[in-house]
Design a protein around this nucleic acid. Structure first.
Lengths: 224, 224
DNA sequence: ACAATATCGATAGTTTTACTTTCACATTTG
DNA sequence: CAAATGTGAAAGTAAAACTATCGATATTGT
């Protein structure tokens, strides 16, 4: 018996729900592979259509444009991650351990290769690291936000902030610290791989060093 | 008598040095205005050329493409900021005060409107906040890095890390903390303006609250 | 001095990307 | 079974990204 996390997505993220058709699901799954391989800028609906043995216009039925596809993928990831946070922290009684568990999840430790519905979660994680900020660093961020496109990110952030407040009530910067920890996990990971002199995680590129840093950043802030 | 900071740029950032000609200088100055107004994605060399009363091809003589223009502008900003850091911390004897001064500079406090050579530094700062990460979050980072395009950022980071190590020798994460503080200053600023629920800086959007947060993040990390 | 040469902005392309329109066929629904 | 709807394919248009060439002007070498 297999349980798949059914992630119900905000309807404004797509024109037609990609999970409701075979082509839609292939757009998501091969879209992840292609963006992971080529990067967001080099990815085009034409190239994706070629790989799907279909035409551009078919993809446009599902997503208004390439940017919306990215926003969808990133939103899916945040919803999936929030579910993991809920699941993994459920049996932990100690707030410290819960936060520790969040840090491990942000680095995708202890996660199986396939998340649900054949989504390649490691490829999606790489996309989130390199491309997620492009989802909101735009001039139309206000309009996109009005359409609730970033709600999954805000929800995750809010959940982590609440864990922080359980650990240390009256901490005055819980939401900022939550978004800082999430963002820091990602770009320190990117720097470690591509611009290592911006980090202290030398040639070994050991993710445990990054975890130690996040740990230090988080708990010294919360404890003082 | 007026002194302008002569920023000598890496020659790989351009095809032809924009500071060596009238058109080149106008590309930089009006480019900043246009990217600030339209955002990087909506900016095109055609629109920029129209505003300059010239043609696209003229701009292509100076910059290989739009991305290289962004990398140039961001590199210019980092070089300018590092100079400000050197200048502003020079007369301070206390390492704590020096770091405090760096935080204020990252938020562009106490800075006059025009930096040097009529560069609109506040517009450039807004560009750095919204667009700078697009300069390195690409699939060709490694190649760009080999060409030293990110050296100004690394140099600034390294300088801040050294100030941290003066304040607290043996701190094990100085470079990561330096890049974290720089990045955090920028996207918390962006969140504060556009996605305020990701921060604790409410409706007032008070930059002093952000400064207090950065202060807390930096000094609790360094002191424990 | 003045011909050779280099540099400049302007003109006019080509190719690629982003997006739209139309259509034929299949499936569902009343 | 006929109308309505959903589907992918074909073939467009418009704009963006980039290139090749050219004539005018400025600079340089002898």
């Amino acid at each position: 018996m297999e349980y798949t996390v059914h992630v119900r997505m905000n309807e404004r993220l797509f024109l037609r729900d990609p999970e409701q058709s075979e082509l839609g699901r292939r757009i998501i799954r091969l879209g992840i592979t292609l963006i992971d391989e080529l990067g967001f800028e080099e990815t085009t609906f034409r190239k994706l259509a070629d790989r799907l043995n279909t035409k551009e216009a078919s993809i446009y039925r599902y997503f208004e444009n390439k940017h919306r596809l990215l926003v969808y993928l990133v939103a899916w990831y945040w919803q999936w991650l929030e579910y993991q946070v809920v699941f993994q922290t459920h049996n932990l009684s100690n707030p410290h351990d819960k936060l520790e568990s969040v840090l491990r999840l942000l680095l995708l430790k202890d996660i199986d290769e396939m998340a649900s519905d054949d989504i390649d979660i490691r490829a999606l994680h790489r996309i989130v690291i390199r491309e997620a900020s492009k989802a909101y660093l735009t001039r139309h961020v206000t309009e996109d936000n009005r359409q609730q496109l970033f709600k999954p990110y805000k929800d995750l952030c809010s959940r982590i902030a609440n864990l922080m407040l359980t650990y240390r009530p009256n901490y005055p910067f819980a939401r900022s610290l939550a978004s800082t920890i999430i963002e820091t996990a990602h770009y320190q990971s990117f720097f470690m791989q591509h611009l290592p002199s911006l980090t202290d995680f030398g040639v070994t590129k050991d993710e445990n060093q990054l975890l130690a840093y996040l740990d230090h950043l988080l708990f010294t802030s919360l404890e003082h």
